[in-house]
């Protein structure tokens, strides 16, 4: 069977590209690290891939705001290619800095003219924090059904966050209610018991404890936590030694993306 091809987009300051590629490979995809200059210069074509992954890091040093400059590059230099990619029913995932890029380029939550409607701003704590968080990814709900990346996940999953600008906000309340109504909220920070909780369970002060959202098609996902940092039980902060547990919680997200491509593209 042919493996779906993943374009792992990198530029100056990208730094989670290799482990994101490794996670996709573990999920049986074929990956390629592609520099933005290769896409802009036409040496590589987005159309040759089924998945576009925007990994974590500090693209251009997060100068002028996290993800801002790369988001503009996508908007002003690759807009047509991206539109075609999305129109073809292909998948996009943005993790951490990738989520910031998706939000600032207007690809998430997504509307007709790709206007920016939400943002990820400096954490309420005022600083970068690396910590593990529980995420609610409701099972068997429409929500899970909408986002192709979030299928077959348990009620709560456990992943690390590591960011300074991860507080999700929207331009107004209408956008926020629209996200809820459309089931675009894919992941919410929660306590170990799955219930809503304050800091540090919600590590940044996000509205509605939002950790990840998808677009209206469910094919574009952005999230602040790092699923690629929990694909193996050895990465668990408490060194879980249960032989029955083969994979980390994050792997299923990558498998979902890859499986979707297999079946649909």
């Amino acid at each position: 069977m042919k493996k779906p091809r993943v374009c792992i987009l990198r530029t100056a300051g990208t730094n989670c590209d290799k482990e994101t590629a490794f996670a996709f490979e573990k999920a049986q995809a074929e990956t390629e690290l592609v520099h933005i200059n290769q896409l802009v210069g036409g040496n590589k074509k987005l159309a040759d891939y089924q998945i576009l992954a925007l990994p974590g890091g500090f693209s251009y040093g997060d100068d002028l705001g996290a993800g801002k400059i790369l988001a503009n590059e996508l908007r002003f230099k690759l807009a047509d290619d991206l539109k075609d990619f999305i129109k073809a029913g292909k998948l996009i995932i943005g993790i951490c800095n990738g989520f910031q890029i998706l939000v600032k380029s207007g690809l998430l939550p997504g509307n007709q003219n790709l206007a920016q409607e939400s943002s990820l701003i400096i954490n309420d704590s005022g600083k970068f924090e690396d910590r593990w968080v529980y995420l609610r990814a409701a099972k068997n709900s429409q929500r899970a059904a909408l986002c192709v990346w979030a299928k077959d996940l348990p009620e709560t999953i456990y992943l690390p966050v590591a960011h300074g600008e991860g507080k999700f906000i929207t331009n107004n309340k209408i956008t926020l209610s629209r996200l809820k109504e459309n089931n675009q909220i894919v992941f919410q920070y929660c306590g170990q018991d799955g219930k809503s909780a304050g800091y540090p369970d919600n590590p940044n002060g996000s509205a509605e404890s939002i950790a990840g959202i998808c677009d209206l098609t469910g094919r574009i996902l952005g999230l602040m936590p790092h699923p690629e940092r929990h694909i193996d039980p050895a990465q668990h902060p408490r060194l879980v030694r249960d032989k029955k547990i083969k994979d980390g919680d994050g792997l299923q997200i990558f498998i979902n993306g890859v499986e979707y491509c297999r079946k649909n593209l």
Binding site: C16, K18, E129, D130, W132
Partner: peptide
């Protein structure tokens, strides 16, 4: 916590550990 101690995905025993890490 202000240091990313898990980037590159290879972190096994982290600087903070415990029932609530």
């Amino acid at each position: 916590r202000q240091y990313d101690h898990e980037v590159q995905g290879g972190s096994v025993l982290k600087p903070l550990t415990g029932i609530v890490n």
